Amino acid sequence: MNDRSNYRGGERSYGGPREMHKATCADCGKECEVPFRPTEGRPVYCNDCFPKHRKPRY
């Protein structure tokens, strides 16, 4: 069984709900929450801005 099969809409069966961390989007400045602890010096993007920074899939 892989990790995807354990994921259920915001909850993981092996760990419960994800811990969310407040961050500020590096593009628009909007406050958002992310499922990881932001690292100083690395940009964080909100759900609206993130797709603009994703590498294209081929």
Rank of each mutant, 00 (worst) to 15 (best):
G16T: 02
E40G: 12
R57M: 12
V34P: 00
V44G: 04
K55I: 13
C32H: 04
E33P: 00
E19Y: 04
A23P: 05
G29W: 03
R12V: 03
P51N: 08
H53P: 07
P17I: 05
D27K: 05
R42H: 12
Y7A: 09
P56I: 07
E19V: 15
D3M: 13
A23G: 07
K22E: 14
H21Y: 15
M20W: 15
E31C: 00
A23C: 07
D27Q: 10
H53I: 10
G9F: 08
H53K: 15
S13H: 08
E40A: 14
R54I: 10
N2F: 13
R57G: 06
K55E: 15
C28A: 01
K52R: 15
E33Y: 06
E11F: 12
S5P: 00
M20S: 05
N6K: 14
C28I: 02
K52M: 06
C28R: 03
E11W: 11
K22A: 15
A26I: 02
K22M: 05
R54L: 15
R8L: 09
H21T: 01
E40I: 05
Y45L: 10
Y58S: 14
C32S: 10
G10I: 01
R57H: 10
E31T: 12
N6H: 13
Y58L: 10
Y45R: 06
R12I: 01
P17F: 06
E31L: 01
E19H: 11
P43Q: 07
R57V: 15
K55Y: 12
K22W: 04
K55V: 14
A26W: 02
H53M: 09
P17N: 11
P38C: 04
F50C: 03
E11P: 00
S5N: 14
P51V: 07
G41P: 07
P17V: 08
P56Q: 11
D48G: 04
P51T: 10
T39K: 14
P51M: 05
G29I: 04
C46I: 05
D27A: 08
R42V: 15
R54D: 08
S13A: 12
N2S: 14
N6Y: 12
C49F: 01
G16A: 03
D48A: 11
P43Y: 07
S13K: 14
F50Q: 09
T24K: 15
E31I: 04
E19P: 02
C28S: 03
N47K: 10
M1W: 11
F36N: 03
P43I: 06
V44E: 05
D48F: 03
T24W: 03
R37D: 13
T24M: 06
R37V: 09
G41D: 08
P43D: 12
R42L: 14
F50M: 08
A23E: 03
E33Q: 12
Y14T: 13
G29M: 04
D27W: 01
C25K: 04
Y14E: 12
E11S: 09
A23K: 03
P35V: 02
V34D: 01
H21R: 03
C49K: 01
Y45K: 02
G10L: 01
G10A: 06
E11Q: 09
T39R: 13
R37E: 15
Y7K: 06
C25F: 06
A26V: 02
S13N: 08
N2E: 13
S5C: 07
A23S: 13
C49D: 06
P56H: 06
G41E: 08
